[in-house]
């Protein structure tokens, strides 16, 4: 599925300024960075409530396609800057991780 398409359908807000024309193949939900590091597959959308700079480092290291920050969390400025630099889209929503995961599932099926 295409990130651009998902943003539109799930009404996600873009905090990064990127084209988002990226295909993703998987979805992973997690807030503990070590667990995400060891389990998330490459080209995944990563759903989390973490907002600080290090999520971008983790995403970059394991080739995450994009990050969705849920529950209306405010994203740190440093995080957005770094994500733009490394071209990792960060999207936000006031919905829960469960609602977003269900939304992506519905789009795929």
């Amino acid at each position: 599925m295409n990130i651009k398409n998902m943003i539109e359908k799930l009404e996600l807000d873009e905090v990064t300024n990127l084209s988002n024309d990226i295909e993703f193949e998987n979805v992973y939900i997690g807030d503990l960075l070590s667990v995400v590091m060891s389990n998330a597959k490459e080209n995944s959308i990563w759903i989390t409530i973490q907002t600080h700079l290090n999520i971008v480092a983790v995403a970059d290291l394991i080739d995450i396609a994009g990050i969705i920050i849920v529950e209306d969390m405010e994203v740190d400025k440093d995080t957005i800057e770094k994500a733009n630099e490394l071209e990792i889209p960060i999207l936000t929503t006031d919905k829960s991780a469960y609602e977003i995961a269900c939304g992506i599932y519905k789009l795929e099926n």
Partner: peptide
């Protein structure tokens, strides 16, 4: 603030040399 920078450098070097994604992922972790 710089957490992950070293790993990112290591990953870049491994990619340049041409290691497989599987090896790069293990080393990145």
């Amino acid at each position: 603030v710089n957490a992950g920078k070293v790993s990112s450098e290591i990953k870049k070097n491994l990619k340049k040399i041409g290691f497989t994604n599987r090896i790069i992922r293990r080393i990145a972790v």
